[in-house]
Structure formats: C-alpha cells, structure tokens
Simulated assay, not measured.
Amino acid sequence: MRRRTPQEFAAWLHDQLLARGYSLTPRGGGQKRFASAAQVSTATISRILRGEGSTDITVLERIADALGVGLGTVLVEAGVIKPDELGATQRPRGQMTADEAADELGITDPTKRTVFRGVVDSLKPSGTDAG
C-alpha cells in the first residue's frame, strides 16, 4: 500500500471539518475556529487544507484530538505511515502469536518453525494459548 499525499490529507481534513459543522467558506470562520480548537495556528490549518505538505507530529496529535479521532487515523491520512503499518503499531503488547513472531523473524523453514513454536510455548506461563 502506498502512502497518502498531502492533497489527499487536505481533502480528508476538509471533509472531516465539514462533517463537524465547520464552515470553510472564505468568511465562514471555520478554519479559525478549528485552529483554535486544535491549538494550532490558522496559517497551519490553511496550509494543510491547501495540500502544501505534512506537518509535525505535535500538530497531527492536536488535529486528532480536536477531531476526536485516533492519532493512528490521522497519521495514515497525513501519509506519515501506510495503512498496513498502522495495524502493527496498534497490536496490544504481548498479543503476538508464535507464528507471527516467526514471520517477523523470517523463520520460514517448517522444522525450524516447529522448534521455535516449542521454545515459545515452553516459556509461556501456564494456562496461555500456544498461538
């Protein structure tokens, strides 16, 4: 999957603002109100809405908070990370299966995977699923 472009982020943010009742007409004041809600400058919001490039993580965090969406969503929409990269960052710690760990480590030989699974299973506390 490819990363999204600044123009795609601008279109996404534009739609998000309209859906939340921010008027984006020249005299509507929506950009200024949203900038205030997000605690960033109006110039920054204007630049983003014009598709003139991404911004730093702090601004993206503030946009996410002001929109009430997860930071991961904004990072994907802004093109900072690819959608498939987001899933890997959101997996709860400790929830990787032995097979997923083997994949991550590049263990492809079936015999080695079986040995790896056995080692992982022997190290798990009793009562947990072998995965």
Rank of each mutant, 00 (worst) to 15 (best):
A35E: 02
T55H: 05
E85H: 09
T5W: 08
R113N: 01
V120I: 15
R27M: 06
V59H: 04
D56E: 14
A130S: 14
G53L: 12
V115I: 13
I81S: 07
L105V: 01
R93W: 14
I45N: 03
R4M: 12
I48T: 02
I57E: 13
I48Y: 05
S54Q: 12
E52K: 14
A37I: 10
A38M: 10
D84W: 11
L67P: 13
F9L: 06
S126R: 08
T58M: 06
R4I: 00
S122L: 13
V119P: 00
E61C: 06
R20D: 01
A11G: 02
T42G: 04
L123I: 09
I45Y: 05
R20G: 01
L105M: 07
A78F: 12
A101E: 06
G28H: 07
V40M: 04
P6K: 08
T111D: 11
D129Q: 13
Y22S: 00
F34Y: 09
R62N: 14
A64L: 09
R62V: 04
R117K: 12
D121W: 04
I81K: 07
G29T: 12
G118Y: 01
L18I: 11
V40D: 01
I45Q: 04
R62P: 01
A88N: 03
L123S: 03
T111R: 12
A88E: 11
V40L: 02
V69K: 07
G21H: 12
E61N: 07
D65G: 13
R33N: 08
A88P: 00
R20T: 02
R27L: 09
K82A: 15
E61K: 14
G51I: 13
T114Q: 06
Q39A: 14
T55S: 10
R113V: 03
G70T: 09
K112T: 05
A11I: 06
F9S: 05
D121T: 09
G21Q: 07
M1K: 02
I48V: 15
G68Q: 08
G29Q: 06
A102S: 05
A43I: 13
S122H: 11
T44R: 11
G70K: 14
S46K: 12
L13V: 01
P125T: 12
G79F: 11
S41A: 07
T73V: 15
V119R: 04
L24F: 07
